[in-house]
Design a protein around this nucleic acid. Structure first.
Lengths: 168, 168
DNA sequence: AATGAAATCGACCAGCA
DNA sequence: TGCTGGTCGATTTCATT
């Protein structure tokens, strides 16, 4: 988790694209896919982990398997005795049911994504948001569908962004 | 990827909590953490994958390593010649720079999260959104900070939700 | 569902371009 | 620095309970 950006070659990018979509493959498979020896793949993976480019390897769970099929986007504005924003954001993120918190510029201060099983739980989450010290007002929208459920850094990256970090 | 919800025991939940935060651990570590034999851990993991509870195992990449430090939330409304919404959502999700698309109820139709390197790229993304057939209007906000960057299904789940899917 | 043994795979090391 | 090939330890698989 030390270095800035830059310093990738095409092989790194291809490798990252592979493991970002599926790390549950054998070194052999990667090795064949990339025309590189197993050892070299292993070497590069380790380096990318050390550099902090690969932050971790995680299992992606299906929310529906837990009945978590209700998602809402809530805009939260706070009373502007400035400076508390950081802790308010942390408080919001810590609430059960909250998945993601964005601190934004503009009229609204936070955008919160939450995911629960039903309306009862959703009401509970929103009430807890209102109860957070410093929160002034909330406005929620229900999500009917999510299109790209998992962030995919490499695939979502614009061409201009990609070419800027790839060397030679 | 077949079954509905329910049908977890405490051990499943603990195991899922572990691998959702870090799957880059040895079976030994999991086995010790959970007081279960290595084989049993392996058996349960396989079952959870077969059931589709574990959708996959992926490497989490650090966007900053690619200079992707600008995030925006864009509200997109469409011209209501209804029925095209699905394909519009897919079109938005396919744009370079777009990470996540939510289809929502209410005055606004889509909420789009996008991530790029700078304002030039951000302008390009937003222009492409406007150019999508059926898109009527957009309104963007810049994100200054993200609090819970990775969705963690188990940890974010409310107690009420958790107890409903855990048996015995 | 869980176990232990046998086959397979991945991590690490010394050396090489 | 980036890679190779080989070794050892870990993991996956399978027959068995």
């Amino acid at each position: 988790m030390t270095d800035a950006n830059g310093g990738f070659d095409e092989m790194d990018i291809e490798l990252l694209r592979c493991v970002e979509s599926d790390f549950d493959v054998s070194l052999d498979a990667l090795s064949e896919e990339l025309d590189l020896s197993k050892s070299a793949v292993h070497y590069r993976l380790n380096k990318l982990k050390d550099r902090g480019v690969i932050e971790g390897v995680t299992a992606d769970l299906d929310p529906l398997s837990f009945g978590l099929d209700m998602v809402a986007i809530t805009e939260v504005s706070v009373t502007h005795e400035q400076g508390y924003s950081e802790s308010i954001g942390a408080d919001l993120a810590a609430l059960a049911g909250v998945e993601q918190v964005y601190y934004t510029m503009g009229d609204v201060d936070f955008v919160v994504i939450s995911r629960v099983q039903d309306r009862t739980q959703m009401n509970a989450v929103i009430e807890e948001m209102v109860a957070v010290e410093g929160v002034n007002e909330t406005s929620s929208r229900f999500v009917m569908d999510e299109i790209t459920s998992r962030p995919r850094v490499i695939d979502a990256m614009p061409e201009a962004a990609r070419s800027r970090v790839v060397e030679e």
